[in-house]
Amino acid sequence: MCGLKPLVLAGGLVVGFSGAALAADLLPPPPPLAPPVPIEVSGWYLRGDIGFSNQDVDKLDNALYGNGLVQNLNKGFDSAPFIGVGVGYKFNNWIRADVTGEYRGKSSFTGLDRYADSFLPTGWGTDSYTATKSEWTTLANVYFDLGTWNGVTPFVGAGIGMSRNTISDFTDTNVVTAALAYGREHSQWEFAWALYAGLAYQVTPNFTVELAYRYLDLGEAQSGDLIGYNGGNGSYNPMKFKDLTSQDIKIGMRWLLGPAVASAPEPYPPLVRSY
């Protein structure tokens, strides 16, 4: 009898382990790992921008152009820096809007006209121009974020607003006739609109940097009345700059005011044990 006790005990252990193994086999597989928690950033934000402009003017115009044939041979602006600030609101991960104010620094202008003149030996005279242009521009913008990959979000946008365009230091030099005229500084408000395309990178849930291209239509501008070197002028004839545009490259920074909101993951169904 004593020899049977170890055998009975071993048999009980085998049966116990077999029952435990069978119960383990009846348990459902463990749930998958929890998905990453998406960050939904929304609310008010501040922004700052710096960049450089590449400006253009479609044509020049002057009251005296009607007196003869005039050809614009050259009319170009140098690149110039600009800086801006703004405040906006991000409605969700797809749509945001802001209002911006921007100072666009002085850009140097050079131009050259050729006009018909039968009294000159060649039959043509020339006028060369110099000036500077600057703007104060304010825009209301809306942007559409197109999804995020590895923290990078491409976006497009559009804006409308007003621009105070200033022409200063305007001079008109005619070497052939030894004539010189100048125009005083002149500013005017014009309707402005913009189109955007760029990439944003979310450094932290509250801080984002942008690299963007902008096409900006600034309307028109003009100099003051052109006065001759002798102080006289036969008519009111400021130089007009028609259809001013700029293709800008800019770097922007956005600071979210307040904490980012994280959405909670879906709860797992309760674990049901089978026996």
Rank of each mutant, 00 (worst) to 15 (best):
K106S: 10
G105Y: 05
W193R: 03
V156C: 02
L69T: 14
A197G: 09
D78S: 14
P267T: 05
R104N: 00
A192F: 01
G3L: 14
Y236A: 03
A10L: 15
V37N: 07
P154Q: 12
A24E: 12
A181R: 06
Y103T: 07
G76E: 14
T173K: 14
G228N: 12
G111Y: 11
P267W: 11
L257W: 01
G258C: 07
L22D: 08
I251C: 00
T208Q: 08
P269T: 08
W94R: 13
V156Q: 06
V41S: 09
P31V: 03
G234K: 12
G234P: 09
A262C: 03
L9D: 15
Y182L: 09
V8L: 13
L4D: 08
A23V: 12
S263P: 05
V152G: 01
P35G: 05
F241E: 02
K90P: 07
L180T: 12
E210K: 15
S163R: 01
G252W: 10
G43E: 00
N93W: 02
N165W: 07
L226P: 01
L211G: 12
G159L: 07
N174I: 12
L180H: 13
I249H: 06
C2V: 15
P29F: 13
S53H: 09
R214W: 05
A10D: 13
A63D: 06
G183F: 06
N174K: 04
T132G: 05
L7S: 06
P28M: 06
G151I: 06
V272R: 15
E210C: 00
T122L: 15
E185I: 00
G12E: 13
A260Q: 13
L73T: 05
S168L: 00
A116H: 11
R104M: 09
I227W: 04
A116P: 00
L257F: 09
T122Q: 14
Y182R: 13
T122R: 14
G252L: 01
S42T: 04
I160G: 12
F52E: 05
S223L: 02
